[in-house]
Structures are given as C-alpha cells and as structure tokens.
C-alpha cells in the first residue's frame, strides 16, 4: 500500500486548500475574519447533514430522505421549539427515535434502505408541509445568537466545523463503539458472530444520523431565521457528495468524519468561488458539477494503487 492510499484524508484537504487559494487569488479581500465568515456561512448545516449521511453510508446503506428530514427538523425548530420549547424538544426527540426505529426495521425485515428512505422522504416532506404550509416561523433567540456568535481568532463557521469534526472523529474512529459500528459496514456477519446485536447497532447508526439531521435543521434555522418545507431538499445529494468527496466509500464501512466535514466545506466553497468568478448564472450549477467531477477524478490516484496491491 502506498503513502497516498494509506492517508486518504490528504485528498479532501488538498482540494479544499486549492479551492481556498483560488478564491483568495480571485478575491484577496476574502482573506479576513469577515470574508471567511461569509464564505463558509452556510457550511455548518451542510457539514452536520453530511455527518448524518455518513452514519448511514457507514453501515452500507444510503439515505435519500435526509434533505426532507432536515427540512422537517427546521420547520419544527422554527415553530414548536420557538413557541413551546418543551413540546418542540419532545418532537425533535421523537424524530431521532423514529430514525433509530427505521434503522431497526430496515435491518429486521431486510428491506432495501434506498427504497424505504425514498418512501420516508415523502413522509417527512408531507409532515413538514403540514407544520408549515407556507414559508414562515421564527428562529428561537438563543439559536440565532449561537449561530451568529463571533468567537476570537476564527469565525463561527470554521470553529464549528473543527468542533464537529473532532467530536465525530472521537465518536466514530477512536471509540470502541464507533469501531464496531464501522464493522457493521465492513462485515455485519462477523460483528454478529462476535456477540454484538446488529439490529441495535443499526438502530444506533440511524439514531445518530437522526440526531445530526436534527442538529443540521436547527443550525439552518439559526442562520436563515425562518424555515419552509423545502428549505433543505438539496441536502440529500449534497450530503452524499460530501461524504464521497471526504474519502468515504459506499460500501465497507470506510468513512472519515473529518473528511466528510472538509467535503462539506469544499462544496460550500465551490458555490462561493463560482460567484467570485463572475460566471454567467446559467453555468453556475454546471460548473459545480464540473468541480465535483474534477475533485473526484483525483480519487483515481488514491484508489488505483490500493486496488492493485
């Protein structure tokens, strides 16, 4: 195994650095506390959603309902959590538990996760429409304060990204439980043979995904100050792209929380970078796709050597 294949984290770090350097070159004024804050402002909810998706990909499943789920969490935050905090908290807790239950059901009945989450995306979307038929609601004051806090040295978004990646790294890579969870993705049967209950582990992985999905919705409301039922629908695809950009694989429990956070930052930055380039709005989306393909192409250098050995 060569150096690059062993240190997969290098790829996301380098792509973020290159993109950041290009942005600073185009717009030197972005190289400041205020500039960085603007660039990465929306990265926090995307990073949290990417971590949520990573939990699901870690156990070899894929979640097509995440965007709808984050939207629903955002709607609950902007309405119930603001008006009646206790009830709001209970609803959010129930959402997390239902995610855990979903994981258990998918495992127990051997259902394809892609289809169940596809169906659930209708359910979450419907509930969100039910709560907030038209855009509105209000962010709880404390959440707004938390998301706009100005810590010394580095802007809020950067500090939050570092904290998220440290916490999830400790949880998934360092802790014993995290190792077993990744083992479910690697070889569920051997984890079961070792005496673990795979159904509980799957429920735990889905529950963690639910938790981070709810956090993403809350962070989003804190930034946007209001919510609507479609606020985060694009997060489904963004989060999958973020996990893969961060060096994760769809199978085998190979995931990297730090990489996923960096992947989310890269995706956010790509959007800012394109607006600095004064690209015609027609091509903005396409250029984002091109950047995605470009960064992923770099994976070839990392994976090919690994496959051959």
């Amino acid at each position: 195994m060569n150096f690059l294949a062993r240190h997969r984290i290098i790829l996301p770090v380098v792509s973020l650095a290159v993109l950041l350097a290009a942005t600073f070159y185009m717009q030197p004024r972005a190289m400041s506390y205020f500039g960085l804050n603007l660039l990465f402002n929306l990265a926090v909810p995307i990073a949290l959603a990417t971590i949520a998706q990573m939990m699901i990909i870690m156990v070899n499943d894929i979640d097509l309902s995440l965007g709808a789920f984050v939207s629903l969490a955002a709607c609950v935050t902007a309405t119930f959590l603001n008006d009646t905090p206790m009830l709001g908290l209970l609803i959010l807790l129930a959402l997390i538990l239902s995610y855990a239950a979903l994981g258990a059901i998918i495992h127990a009945l051997e259902l394809p996760a892609i289809v169940v989450t596809l169906g659930m995306s209708f359910v979450w979307g419907g509930l969100a429409l039910f709560i907030l038929p038209s855009p509105g609601g209000e962010s709880p004051g404390w959440l707004r304060t938390l998301m706009t806090v100005k810590p010394p040295f580095a802007p809020m978004a950067v500090v939050a990204a570092v904290i998220i990646s440290i916490v999830t790294h400790l949880l998934i890579i360092r802790s014993g439980l995290g190792t077993v969870l990744r083992g479910v993705g690697g070889n569920a049967r051997s984890v079961a043979r070792a005496g673990w209950s795979v159904i509980w582990l799957k429920a735990l992985a889905y529950g963690l995904a639910g938790l981070f999905g709810v956090l993403a919705g809350m962070a989003l409301v804190g930034l946007a100050t209001s919510a609507d039922a479609n606020i985060a629908l694009r997060y489904t695809l963004l989060s999958i792209a973020g996990v893969i950009l961060g060096g994760g694989e769809f199978t085998g429990g190979k995931v990297s929380p730090t990489g996923a956070v960096i992947g989310a930052l890269t995706l956010t930055l790509a959007a800012s970078f394109l607006s600095f380039m004064r690209l015609s709005p027609d091509w903005q989306i396409g250029a984002q796709g091109a950047i995605l393909i470009l960064v992923l192409t770099a994976r070839l250098i990392f994976s090919r050597k690994g496959v051959e050995t």
């Binding site: 894929i62 769809f250 027609d282 989306i285 994976r299 994976s303």
Partner: peptide, 27 residues
C-alpha cells in the same frame, strides 16, 4: 465514461453530470 474511465460510483457520476446537463438546458 465518467463511471468507467474515472471509476466514479454511478450515483455520484450521474449526479455531477446531471448538474452540467441542467446548465446546458438553462443556457
């Protein structure tokens, strides 16, 4: 070609490519 030459997972390859097709359609 994205899937075969660049060895991208089909989900990601078709997703990224669809952004480009969408841009061409908008343009």
């Amino acid at each position: 070609f994205l899937i075969f030459l660049l060895r991208l997972p089909p989900i990601i390859a078709t997703l990224a490519a669809s952004l480009i097709y969408q841009s061409i359609a908008i343009w």
